[in-house]
């Protein structure tokens, strides 16, 4: 194994907190990706649906996805800030 790899492993081992944060970041990104796909699908459906109850339902679903994604993006920013500038412990 190369020295670089070994050092990376050691660093990961020593900063368990950061590893957990990276894991969290990865999971949130995965969920955000799912939401993005759903958003695209709903936007396409919204364009094809005439105004009415169904149109309103889809718009409402999109509104929820925006709110959820906003939460997710904020959390990602927060975590990114932390992993780049780890607070002294």
């Amino acid at each position: 194994m190369k020295t670089k790899k070994l050092l990376a492993r050691l660093a990961g081992f020593l900063s368990a907190d950061q590893t957990a944060q990276r894991e969290e970041l990865k999971s949130i990104r995965k969920v955000l990706k799912k939401l993005k796909a759903k958003e695209r699908d709903l936007t396409a459906r919204l364009e094809q649906t005439p105004p009415g109850d169904e149109h309103e339902e889809i718009a409402q679903k999109l509104q929820v996805i925006y709110a959820q994604r906003r939460k997710g993006v904020e959390r990602v920013r927060e975590l990114k800030g932390r992993t780049q500038n780890p607070s002294p412990s």
């Binding site: 990865k26 999971s27 949130i28 969920v31 709110a67 939460k71």
Partner: peptide, 22 residues
């Protein structure tokens, strides 16, 4: 499937207050 994803979903989920406001 994973615990990490469960927790990620939990963080993004809207709480009762968010929903009531919306």
């Amino acid at each position: 499937p994973t615990r990490a994803e469960q927790s990620a979903e939990g963080q993004l989920a809207l709480n009762e207050q968010d929903i009531a406001r919306m």
